[in-house]
Structures are given as structure tokens and as C-alpha cells.
Design a protein around this nucleic acid. Structure first.
Lengths: 347, 347
DNA sequence: ATGAGTCATGTAAACCGTTACATTCGCGTT
DNA sequence: AACGCGAATGTAACGGTTTACATGACTCAT
């Protein structure tokens, strides 16, 4: 029962009484094919259920029309949407996407040491949320690999990023405007083994906003943990245990904010009466608990990452004219970042 | 700047002073290669940073070592974990996974009509949550395509399914045991355009449990909507608006249950004092609102789906001995389905 | 009528592995 | 000494495209 192969281009050529070259050209819409010929070939190909074998095409052209998506966190709220956005754009452009999660630091190392050899397997990489060293990035770049990063930056590759400073600033500023002066922070771990730069930037936005308001920084108000409800809960408990607890908290994700909400419940506290909270992501469940949140557009940003990569592939490293359009799109996404106010901060 | 291709097998052969055949055999761990030769070839390949071009290998063998994952819902809670589990197993077995979401009914149709021609592109398919007609499935099967389905069943392909009847039964039974006799249902839409069989089976489990308890079915207590918080909220509102509302509700997913919780909040009701609720999934956020939930193991099930597919590919359609082991694993997953009781039902 | 210039098509060489079959070699048997 | 056999290796065909280059036909201007 060996795997049957369908009709080949030769079969089509024979049937259509032309050469394989003509079939190839006709089917790919290349110029210099008589219209009548093209029509005939197309019809016959259709009839025979012919499809070019992608492996053969890849071998001949050296282009795989494949993009690899590398990420440690395929099921987080933010990145699962980012990924969906990227894949949608890639498919619309004739690319398929290989998902390759790296579950732990060892896999991450194995992956990175493999990166350089990846060149033949895919046309490009979207590396999400995975802190690659400058050295590794340089090596990849020298090997001619096209990549776009998200959630962290390198010198050599374009990265599609949210203006995370802005996110932190906006959230904190929202609380400041409500009159809070003692504002806690529930942060993601800045030095996670599969680390990325988001926590650092949002932290900077937080301190920046405080500084702009002339409020001095109290680092006991900065608690960090995993980007999960459980992490948020624990961080909140630490804040509540403080001798002088905050009156408001900026949580770096809604999932963390949900955990913080849980911690409040446990102590029979609620927002905004006892503590005001603002999260990030505008999670579907945020409205349910009245969580104020900074709305992002992960799907849109994923799409931009894909476009960026496609541009890179198209120019094979040269900077093409399309990059401005992409910049504009990225800025548009960033300009759409905004606080969605709900009861958690309406004091 | 054309894409450079790395060293080929011929380069390695020259360097190692053997034929390409020997290199191929040595590097793939085939027998009939002198150990000294193998070592030398391996070392040289390592040095030269050689990797076999997968496209060439695919062309030669007809095997792509690629599996395509088709799903309408890449970012739902359940299926994103299912997918992660499947990919992990596939990667462990040397397969890469192409993610191909179909966002809407049109894409679904286009995809299905394309399925038959897919044979050359990938070795197998995992089709998730996408209602394929028996005719289409038959056609695929005749074309020699290997596939495993999840979330729905067909005659021709094995499907990896949770015992969803059991899920519905267990949840309802839990409420019955707490003394409830008027139990509402918040169901997923049974006839969604990208429909799957889960709602029907859970509904059957619900009615089965009621029947077993000698309680007559009141269809006004069955409200359906999208598998989202919003869908759950609306359904709950309809239940609360009934002249004779239920004292307990089985929601087919935690996300729906969260929505129901929101509806209760809006009316200043709470669980379990006013209405007891049990959901499904044991979502991370379930503990926060004290939601009782039926715990499933999507990740484990995804892994089983992958194993099932790999077995199918290995035997190329013949039923091999491995299938029993897979059956056992599936049963193990089903036997682990259980109600995690929290405050939402502890009356 | 001839040459230049287009356009449509064909020829054949890549692309880079895998693998059936052939060959060589060394060794143990009889 | 001849033979057989298995292990190690080599030879070459094959998989299905793409594409540089060659060819042929036809048009148009001179």
C-alpha cells in the first residue's frame, strides 16, 4: 500500500499536447503563454485533479513558502491571538505556517543552536516571546535567515512591538488622574528563562508616569510573578500585606488582574472601593468583573509581523519600499492602544 | 542576493571520501555501514554544518514528515491546549505541524474541496472541530489521505473524542445529588456552521441523567448560544427570565459559566445561594469565582490524536497493533474526567 | 525579400536527496 | 583451492518541478 502519487506535470503536458515547461508557465500565470494554450492547460489540469508537488517545486526553486513560528507560549491569551493574526496574513499570501513551540529552556537551547541550519527548511521565522542573544541573532543573520521578532528585540532583525512603555504609562496615568498617589505594580517576571522585554518596558512606563507626576518610586510596591492568574494573586497578596498598601494597582495583564481580584475577594475587599486596578489586554472576561484594561490589538500586530517578514523575504534582505507602509500600520496599532475604563477604577 | 544553499550531500561525500549513498545511510542510522565510516561521516557533516534538504528528501521518499492541523478555533481555551498537546507529540516523533485555521464557512468549504488534493503536501491531517460530511470524508479516504478527527466523528477516520455524554451526565448528576430537580442547561449551538458534535452529546448526557433520576425534560430550560462568556450570559438571562427559573444550571463550558456568573452579578444574585452552576473545562480562572467544573485533559487528548495519526501513517491505513495501546490511553483520559467541586455548587 | 524583433514553445540541465541493484572484499567452509 | 556468504560500499536511476537557453514562427519595416 505505498502512497500513490497523483498525476505529474508530465501527464498534464502529454494530455494537453504541450511541453512540461509550457504547463508550468501556464499554471503559474507567467507571461509568454498564448491565452488559448493557458485555458486548455488549466482545464486539463483541473480535470486531472493535478496539483504541483510542493516538494519538487521547493527543491527546484529553493523557496519553501513556509514560515516557522517559534514560541514558548502558544496558549497564552495575548500570543494565541497574535499568532492567529500572523497565520491569517501568511495564508492570504500563499504561505503555510509551521508551529514549533519550545516548551522549556532545554528545547529553547536546542532550537537556537539549530537555528542556523534552518535556512533550507523555511523561508522565514517569526520568533515570539523568546529571548535570543545578540550573538545567536547575528549568526542567524549571517546565515541569511529571515526573521521577525515579537516580544523582544535584537539588533539584526526587525521586531514588531507594541509600545509597551506607552502601555505602562497609560495605565498608570489613568490611576494618577483618578487621584491615586500610592500605586502598586503587579509585574511579569523580568528575568524569566524564556524572557522577553515586555515587563521591563511596562515597568519603565509605570515609573515614567509616576515621575512625571512628581511621585517618588517605592520599590516595595513592585511585585512580580508569572503572567497568570495565580501569579497575580500572589503578587496582590504581598501588596496587601504591606504595612502601607497601595490604593491602586497596575497589573501587567488581565490574567494577573483576575488573580488580584481573587485576592481581594478572599479578604472581602473589592474594587474600586478598596483598591482600584487596571490591567492589560482587554480580555473577554474583563467586562464580567468590571476590570478596567488597556486594550491592545494582538491580532493586528501578528498580521503586521507577518507582513514585515514577507517584505523581508521578498527583498531578500534589501530594504524595500514596503517597509514604510508597515511602519505606518504598526504605528496605527500603537495609536489604537487605549484604556477601557470599567468599574475597577471608577472610584 | 539569491538564497544561498548550504553544502550538499555530495560535498560531504567528497570530503569523507565515500559515496553519497554511504553518507545518506550513515547519517540516517541505517545498517550496513562500518562504524568507523559512520563516525567519520558524522563528524564531517557536523563540521560542514550539513543538513539534508527536507524538500529533496520529501521528493525522493514521498513522505513529507508534515502534519496539517485544521481548525476553526485556534484560540479557544480547550482547543488551544488540545493543539499544543498534539504538536508536542508530533515534534517528539520528528514531524512538523502546519497550522491552517479556517476562519469562516467559506474558507471551510474551500478547504474541504481542496482536501482531496492535499495528499502530496502532508502525511496526515488532524481535523479539529470542523464538521466534515461523510461524503467528503469518504472522498478523502479514497484518495489515501490519513486523518484523525476531534470534536466530531466520521465513519472513515478514527476520531479522538472525549466521552462527552459522560461529561454531560456527570455534571448534571452532580447537581442532582445536591438535591436539585429543576436544572437548566446552557448549551453550545448544536447547528453552528462549523459545527461539531460536542453539544449534542453533552445534551444527551444531561437528559440521560435527568431521565435516570426520573425527572421529566423541560425544553424551556435548554438555552443555547456561542461557546463564549457573552453567549453564556445571554443564555443565563433567558433562564432567569423564565416564569419558573431553574435552581441549578449546567453550562457546557467554563467560559459560558463565567458569562452566567456575570448575569447573576447583574441581578445581585450569586452562587450557590441563588443558583448552583457547574461548568466544563476546569479553566484557570474557575477557582477565582469558585466555579465547579468538569475537568478534562485537552492536552493529553491532543497527544493521543497525534499518536493515533502517527500509527495510521506508519501502517499506511492498515490497522496495526499499536491501536489498542492508543485505545487504552484514550480510555485513561476519559476515566480521568471528574467534577471539581467548588463553591458554585456547594449549597 | 531580408533582417530584426516578438512571442510562443520546446529542450534539457539543474535542484538534492533516496534506494534498488551491482560490486568488491574478506573470511570461514568444505 | 574453490566456493559461498555477508558486510561495506559504490553506481546510477528516479522523484517532479523550474528555468536558462534554443528554436521556430510570425510581423513589420526597409
Amino acid at each position: 500500500m505505498s502512497r500513490s502519487r497523483g498525476p505529474s506535470i508530465e501527464d498534464v503536458a502529454r494530455e494537453a499536447q504541450v511541453s512540461v515547461a509550457t504547463v508550468s508557465r501556464a499554471l503559474r500565470g507567467l507571461p509568454n503563454v498564448a491565452e488559448t494554450t493557458r485555458l486548455r492547460v488549466e482545464e486539463i489540469a483541473q480535470q486531472m485533479n493535478y496539483r504541483a508537488d510542493p516538494s519538487a517545486a521547493r527543491l527546484a526553486t529553493g523557496q519553501t513558502k513556509l514560515v516557522q513560528l517559534v514560541t514558548p507560549t502558544a496558549d497564552g491569551w495575548y500570543f494565541s491571538r497574535f499568532i492567529a493574526g500572523a497565520i491569517a496574513v501568511l495564508i492570504a499570501n500563499g504561505y503555510e505556517t509551521i508551529s514549533h513551540p519550545v516548551a522549556n529552556p532545554e528545547e529553547r537551547e536546542a532550537f537556537i543552536s539549530d537555528l542556523v541550519r534552518l535556512e533550507k527548511r523555511v523561508d522565514g521565522l517569526i520568533v515570539v516571546d523568546l529571548n535570543i542573544s545578540e550573538d545567536a541573532a547575528l549568526e542567524m543573520h549571517n546565515a541569511g535567515i529571515h526573521a521577525v521578532t515579537a516580544g523582544f528585540t535584537t539588533q539584526k532583525f526587525p521586531s514588531v512591538i507594541i509600545d509597551d512603555y506607552h502601555v505602562g504609562f497609560l495605565a498608570t496615568d489613568h490611576l494618577l488622574k483618578l487621584g491615586h498617589t500610592r500605586i502598586g505594580l503587579i509585574s511579569g517576571q523580568p528575568n524569566h528563562p524564556l524572557a522577553f522585554s515586555v515587563p521591563g518596558l511596562r515597568l519603565a512606563g509605570y515609573t515614567g508616569a509616576l515621575a512625571a507626576a512628581g511621585i517618588s518610586i517605592d520599590t516595595t510596591l513592585e511585585q512580580s510573578g508569572m503572567f497568570t492568574a495565580e501569579g497575580g494573586r500572589r503578587a496582590m497578596e504581598r501588596l496587601l500585606d504591606l504595612a502601607d498598601p497601595p490604593t491602586a494597582v497596575f497589573a501587567m495583564s488581565d490574567e494577573m488582574a483576575f488573580g488580584a481580584w481573587g485576592a481581594l475577594q478572599d479578604r472581602n475587599l473589592s474594587w474600586p472601593d478598596d483598591i482600584a486596578i487596571v490591567g492589560v489586554d482587554d480580555h473577554e472576561l474583563a467586562p464580567l468583573v468590571g476590570l478596567t484594561s488597556v486594550r491592545l490589538d494582538p491580532r493586528g500586530l501578528g498580521g503586521i509581523a507577518a507582513k514585515q517578514l514577507l517584505a523581508l523575504i521578498a527583498n531578500d534582505g534589501e530594504h524595500g519600499p514596503s517597509s514604510e507602509a508597515i511602519q505606518d500600520a504598526a504605528e496605527a496599532v500603537n495609536s489604537r492602544i487605549e484604556v477601557v475604563a470599567r468599574t475597577s477604577t471608577i472610584g
